[in-house]
Design a protein around this nucleic acid. Sequence first.
DNA 1: GGTTTTGTTCGATCATTGTCGAACAAGGGT
DNA 2: ACCCTTGTTCGACAATGATCGAACAAAACC
Lengths: 101, 101
Amino acid sequence: MEPHEPDLTAVPVTSVLAALADDVRLQIVRALAEGGEAACGSLDFGVSKATRSHHLKVLREAGLTRTRAAGTSRLVRLRRDEVDKLYPGLLDAVLTPRSPA
Amino acid sequence: MEPHEPDLTAVPVTSVLAALADDVRLQIVRALAEGGEAACGSLDFGVSKATRSHHLKVLREAGLTRTRAAGTSRLVRLRRDEVDKLYPGLLDAVLTPRSPA
DNA sequence: GGTTTTGTTCGATCATTGTCGAACAAGGGT
DNA sequence: ACCCTTGTTCGACAATGATCGAACAAAACC
């Protein structure tokens, strides 16, 4: 089945924000912003692979990431340009890790 | 009882995003951004006053708004400067109403 | 003092969502 | 062919959250 990667303009703002409003997903997004394309398996943040797959699906369906198959792996990357264009400042504002949790 | 308005730096980013990731609250924030200070009662978006009070509490505890008493009313205002300073671009990116819902 | 206005809080309900283990699917290697 | 690796999907469960009506609180006004 195709991964269902919607056009960002078709995703409600609240869905984009909700996708970013989770600690695990925020760590994933930060990792992608720093490291570029990454295999799903490399994005381990203390949750099971089922949960990780769920989070990646949320990010994908929010229009924030793209996924492509590569062997048995799947490579995920941040749709930075598109997000920055539609929501200028959003990623920059959110990506910087802040001290107080 | 004091309204509990935390320092923005003490609020996790995910809480700020979660506060904005709701349609009703986003409408409230937009109204406040446009109209400045507003009474709670003027922020009617089709929900009961109990629900509205709940949403205003979420926004307040996310560090996004301040509330002050004025007679029997309570006036709410957006903490725009502080939010813009800590999360530059966030409100601008989110406040603009977009077509696709 | 009583009534009206304006919000908050409480309890309940219902939907959403984060989480996991287990089962499944697909590709690569041997 | 077999197995291993990598992810996804499927229930299930627990926690969170949005919603409401009703009860409560506080100030203003008569």
